[in-house]
Design a protein around this nucleic acid. Structure first.
Length: 452
RNA sequence: GGCCACGUGGCGGAGUGGUGACGCAGCGGUCUGCAAAACCGCGUACCCCGGUUCAAUUCCGGGCGUGGCCUCCA
């Protein structure tokens, strides 16, 4: 059996991966907060961990991997939007919240599916697990790891001696760098919120500490526990979540579970920049997955994402997308992917992926397969990696009528060439080119494609 | 200010203590009426300065640069 090596943020080194239970390998990845379209940065962990999910399924068997990716539908940004919608439509904040999150979550799942990502085994929503969150908070309070204060419940970081082990930062260091005002009711400035009170205009749930809502970190702890148990194999997410989110998740879960380790391996994907700059709404370079999919098929986006190793920062550029498109176009004009093909993965690719998801190496190996004429193996490998084989330009859908017209033009050109009427044949070629159609003369006749 | 990553040819991007991955672009060629495509061939790169070593891009130290985190953020 293939041995995977994965970089573990906890130990800061690559380790051989040995599942707690090979019959049920468990993976948790932090999903989106659903208040707006997901952007291309959100797509990175989804694609990266989908590759990991596929790899685990390949190695341990498709029925022996449980993948949980949550949807956060309790959040103050959502609440802010819900308040606006509630006021505008004269509905309750609860109804507005439900409407916003349902629509955004559906959009997210559609986008991610278009990127070739398999649905996780479970996609829990935070609102469905409030009961479990309240129970976990209650346990933490009872055990002295948390305390109520002014309607809030706070986690007491001093009760967790190894707090900071993931981020590798001591409490003193965190305090030295702190730049935020500390709420007066906190015992320790680093204490974080498990539960906070809701007013009448904010969605809330009943709890022993009054009507309120859970803090962000406890959501993942509760959902992870409910679906994967106290200890699971791999926890993934963006590197920006390492602190405080993941650190706090560890603190909560391990404190509630008699110090049983939350996850054996922590994996973090690097950040993404757009054309060399940090992506932000103010810079106007904010790219949503949805917009991107209007210009490029999911295969192109997926391939482009995998050209960079997941732990490296990635610079998202249009030049890169064109390059990715051209590569795939080159392959898919030689062979196609069929849905019923068996899906063996080339050994060289498996080897690259097994080394901490070395996808740049994997792509190099794909090129080698192509160069060596192993088209069938290349096709099945791509299929197994989540590619569909469809990279037609979504903007220039020629359609069957358009295709027939083009074929007629090509026939006319071929006839002109046979008659050595090159002025006419070149005219037809130029005319098609003006419409964005490129002709390619090969030994078996002329083919065409949309220029990119 | 504190903490942490990273710095490979025109570009993207692997890897290694000692024979220059892979792709794009570029150059040359085959083919073609021509062009494109396709195919074949061509590249002595590893931020700077010290140190260790027979040998460093690869290990160690320092410097510079870029990015991230410390606050919601994938």
């Amino acid at each position: 059996m293939t041995t995977l090596r994965l970089y573990n943020t906890l130990t800061r080194q690559k380790e051989d991966f040995a599942p707690l239970d090979p019959d049920n390998v468990r993976l948790y990845v932090c999903g989106p907060t659903v208040y707006d379209y997901a952007h291309i940065g959100n797509a990175r962990p989804v694609i990266v961990f989908d590759v990991l999910y596929r790899l685990l399924r390949h190695v341990y068997g498709a029925d022996h991997v449980t993948y949980v990716r949550n949807i956060t539908d309790i959040d103050d940004k959502i609440n802010a939007r819900a308040a606006e919608v509630a006021a505008a439509k004269n509905v309750s904040v609860e109804a507005a919240r439900a409407e916003i999150t349902a629509a955004t979550a559906k959009q997210y799942l559609d986008d991610v599916t278009a990127l070739g990502c398999l649905p996780p085994t479970h996609t829990p929503r935070a609102t469905e697990y409030v009961k479990q969150m309240v129970a976990m908070i209650g346990k933490l309070v009872a055990d002295g790891h948390a305390y109520p204060a002014e309607g809030h419940v706070l986690f007491d970081v001093s009760s967790k001696p190894d707090y900071g082990k993931l981020a590798r930062r001591s409490l003193d260091e965190m305090l030295a760098g702190a730049r935020v005002e500390v709420a007066p009711y906190k015992k320790n400035p680093m204490d974080f919120v498990l539960w906070k009170p809701s007013d009448d205009l904010t969605p809330g749930w009943e709890s022993p500490w009054g009507r309120g809502r859970p803090g962000w970190h406890i959501e993942c702890s509760a959902m992870g526990e409910a679906l994967l148990g106290e200890t699971f194999d791999i926890h993934g997410g963006g590197i920006d979540l390492m602190f405080p989110h993941h650190e706090n998740e560890i603190a909560q879960s391990e404190s509630a579970h008699h110090d049983h380790q939350l996850a054996k391996v922590w994996m973090h994907n690097g950040f993404l920049q757009v054309e060399g700059e940090k992506m932000s709404k103010s810079l106007g370079n904010f790219v949503t997955i949805n917009e991107l999919l209007k210009d490029w098929r999911g295969d192109v986006v997926r391939f482009n994402m995998l050209k960079t190793h997941y732990r490296q920062p990635i610079d998202w550029t249009s030049q890169g997308l064109v390059e990715s498109f051209n590569t795939l176009a080159n392959w898919f004009r030689t062979f196609s992917l069929s849905s019923e093909m068996s899906q063996p993965i080339a050994d060289s690719v498996l080897e690259a992926l097994s080394d901490d998801l070395n996808t740049p190496k994997m792509i190099a190996e794909l090129h080698v397969l192509y160069r060596d004429g192993k088209h069938e193996l290349l096709a099945s490998t791509l299929k197994a990696l989540g590619f569909s084989g469809d990279i037609e330009d979504p903007k220039i859908a020629v359609g069957s009528e358009g295709a027939i017209a083009i074929e007629q033009q090509i026939a006319a050109r071929t006839a002109a060439r046979k008659a050595k009427n090159f002025a006419e044949s070149d005219r037809i070629r130029d005319e098609l080119l003006a419409k964005g159609i490129v002709l390619k003369d090969g030994p078996n006749g002329t083919t065409w494609e949309v220029k990119r």
